[in-house]
Amino acid sequence: MTSHIDTCGLSCPQPVLLFLTALRKTEAKEFDVLVDNEVSRENVTRAAENHGCHVTAHQEGNDVTRLHIAKN
């Protein structure tokens, strides 16, 4: 099961908070997190890696990146 999280337009600390809440509270093993700026991308990536997850980034549009995050 993949959990989908759209953080576009949200500012700190909400993108990381939404991801970490999903990481703790859902059964999902994989997460697709949409980010629309570099800061959110860096912060969510750093948080995921701190929790032992593997992150791959896919460019979705001009500003939007989809971070595919897999729990180890």
């Binding site: 600390p13 990381v16 908070l17 750093r46 701190n50």
Partner: peptide, 18 residues
Amino acid sequence: RFCTMGAIRDVILFRHWH
């Protein structure tokens, strides 16, 4: 992305020390 408020917030909220 230097931020003094963020520094304190991230420690309280996430235990992130970056």
